[in-house]
Computed example of a mutant assay.
Amino acid sequence: MDDVKFGEILLPGDEDTQSRREQTVRKKFWPTFKKAVRQIPFTRDVVAAFYCAMDPQTPTRVRGVLLAALAYFVMPIDMIPDVFAVIGFSDDVAVLSAAFAMVSRHLQPRHYEAADRALADKPEGMKTI
């Protein structure tokens, strides 16, 4: 996957696009996370990114980038289908990594604290907000 594709995937989008992505991410994040938890090496960061994207104090552009990456993560149709063992989530990991590199300074301690609570309360990643 090249930088041009990352750029296309990680476009923040307009308000309507962000709203649609947020609804999709809210609905599908935890079930997808549960399936991927063993294949993603930075699960705490992924959950913190979820909380950062849902945080109204997060700047709109940052929310947009995170929602784009998380929407790609939860969508069943992507470059490498998630049903393939081992490599299925590799493209998702690449997209999430690129998003983290773009917005990492916006992931606040409160997002990591929420992630830690969610992961401690429900190790399967099924806690809702």
Rank of each mutant, 00 (worst) to 15 (best):
D3H: 12
K5G: 07
F6R: 08
F6E: 12
G7H: 14
E8G: 13
I9H: 07
I9R: 10
P12V: 15
P12F: 15
P12T: 13
G13V: 14
G13S: 11
D14N: 15
D14T: 09
D16S: 15
T17W: 08
T17A: 11
R21P: 07
E22I: 07
E22W: 00
Q23S: 13
T24P: 03
V25A: 07
V25L: 01
V25Q: 03
R26C: 11
K27D: 10
F29V: 03
P31L: 04
T32Q: 07
T32F: 07
T32G: 06
F33Y: 09
K34C: 13
K34H: 14
V37G: 10
R38H: 09
R38I: 04
Q39G: 09
I40T: 01
T43V: 01
D45L: 04
D45V: 04
V47W: 00
A48G: 03
A49L: 04
A49M: 06
F50P: 06
F50G: 12
Y51M: 02
C52R: 12
C52F: 14
A53W: 00
M54F: 11
M54W: 11
D55F: 05
D55A: 04
D55W: 06
P56S: 15
Q57Y: 07
Q57I: 11
T58N: 05
T58A: 01
T58D: 03
T58Y: 04
T60M: 10
T60A: 11
V62Y: 02
V62N: 00
R63L: 02
R63I: 04
R63D: 05
G64K: 03
V65Q: 02
V65D: 00
V65Y: 01
L66C: 01
L67C: 09
L67G: 06
A68T: 02
L70V: 09
L70I: 06
Y72V: 09
V74Q: 03
V74D: 01
V74M: 06
M75A: 13
P76D: 15
P76Q: 12
I77D: 10
I77R: 10
D78M: 15
D78P: 12
D78F: 15
M79P: 01
D82W: 12
V83A: 08
F84L: 10
F84W: 15
V86N: 11
V86I: 04
I87A: 08
G88P: 13
F89W: 13
F89G: 07
S90Y: 01
S90R: 08
S90P: 05
S90L: 14
D91V: 14
D91T: 13
A94M: 11
S97H: 12
A98Q: 14
V103E: 03
V103N: 01
V103I: 06
V103L: 10
S104P: 00
H106W: 07
L107S: 02
L107G: 00
P109F: 03
R110P: 00
R110C: 04
R110D: 09
H111N: 01
H111Q: 00
H111S: 02
Y112R: 06
Y112P: 01
E113Q: 07
A114N: 09
A114C: 04
A115G: 06
R117V: 08
R117L: 05
R117C: 00
A118C: 06
L119W: 00
L119N: 09
L119A: 04
A120W: 13
A120L: 13
D121A: 15
K122Y: 15
K122Q: 12
P123S: 03
P123D: 05
E124A: 02
G125W: 13
I129M: 11
I129A: 08
